[in-house]
Structures are given as structure tokens and as C-alpha cells.
């Protein structure tokens, strides 16, 4: 499986190489698209600076610890392991941060513990919500995102709940 997915990118590139060989305009077409991609990426900087500074402040201020304490009883109600609460709080805001947190949990509770299995499944079936939303909409200059945030938030809650549920069926 890992091997198959590692072949996808090379085969696309092989195909593009053949296209370049037989089409004189291929290179021009590539440059045109590439320029657009570059401009979009650059235009994201102001949004990301603002967002990441807020997230950095939030995680360094110690507010996360208090939130974990506040959320512990709710997590218990939903049968979500308390150990993974810090990870759950980081997941929507930071991809690399939540990955690092997962790695720490592995060290603390061993990778095969129930809490860590839950953490893995949650990580694998969710994405950095805040990053996705802000980058997508700011790249096209949308100011009102309507129901995006509430839907994404509810989806994350559902994802956490269903992941722990599926894990309980599989691993206990």
C-alpha cells in the first residue's frame, strides 16, 4: 500500500515529461500555471502571519492547560480519553504542533495504548481546520464564510467522538 502510494507522484511526473516531449507549448502552459500558484502562495503571507501569531501566543500562554482541565468532565461524558485532550485542542489549529504532541503522547503512554490509538485515528481522519479555512478563503478574498466554521467545528467534534467509538470496537 505504501509502495503503491509512493508511485503515484513519479508516474504523474513521467506522464508530464512525455507531454513536454511531444508538445511545444507544454512548457509555456506549465509556466503560466506556475506563476499563478506562486502569486497565490505569496498572497497568503499576511493572513498566516496574523493567524500563526495568535496560535503561538495561545499555546505559549498556558491557556491550553486550563482548557484541558475545564473540558475533562465533558470528555469523560463522551467517553473520550482525557490523556488526548491537549492533542484535540491543538489539532484544529496546528498540523506540525499536533504531530509533535502525538509523538509526545506515544512516549508517555506507549504507541499501542488505547489513548494513543484513539489519537492516531482522530489525527488520520481530521485536518488542521483553522488553517484550511483561513487559507482557502483569504486566497480568493472572501470576507463572509457563512456556515463554514460551524460545519467544520461540528465535523471535528463528530470525528473525535466517532474515532474513539470505532477504536473501542476494534481494540477492546
Amino acid at each position: 500500500m505504501q509502495y503503491v502510494s509512493s508511485l503515484i507522484l513519479p508516474s504523474i511526473l513521467f506522464f508530464v515529461g512525455i507531454l513536454f516531449l511531444f508538445d511545444k507549448n507544454g512548457f509555456e502552459i506549465f509556466l503560466q500555471g506556475a506563476k499563478n500558484g506562486f502569486n497565490t502562495a505569496i498572497s497568503l503571507l499576511p493572513t498566516l502571519v496574523l493567524l500563526l501569531s495568535a496560535i503561538g501566543m495561545f499555546t505559549s500562554s498556558g491557556a491550553v492547560d486550563l482548557l484541558c482541565k475545564l473540558l475533562a468532565p465533558i470528555a469523560e461524558r463522551l467517553a473520550v480519553s482525557q490523556e488526548i485532550l491537549p492533542l484535540l485542542l491543538l489539532r484544529p489549529v496546528s498540523g506540525s504542533g499536533s504531530m509533535a504532541m502525538a509523538s509526545e503522547l506515544f512516549k508517555k503512554y506507549t504507541a499501542d495504548s488505547f489513548a494513543c490509538l484513539c489519537a492516531c485515528v482522530i489525527m488520520g481522519s481530521s485536518d488542521t481546520m483553522l488553517y484550511v479555512i483561513s487559507v482557502y478563503f483569504s486566497s480568493v478574498g472572501i470576507k463572509r464564510t457563512r456556515h463554514t466554521l460551524i460545519c467544520a467545528f461540528l465535523t471535528l467534534i463528530f470525528c473525535i467522538f466517532i474515532s474513539c467509538f470505532v477504536c473501542r470496537i476494534f481494540f477492546t
Binding site: 502552459i29 500555471g33 499563478n36 506562486f38
Partner: peptide, 21 residues
Amino acid sequence: AVDLVLTLCGVMTFWCGIINV
């Protein structure tokens, strides 16, 4: 944030070119 945008720049330039083709 700047590091992230720089990484994105490379990836986006490359992939948007490929996709355009």
C-alpha cells in the same frame, strides 16, 4: 509563518504548473 509560505511557494508553483498542463 514566513517559513510556511516559502515552502508553500515552492509546492504551489510546481503543482499549479503541472496541473495547468
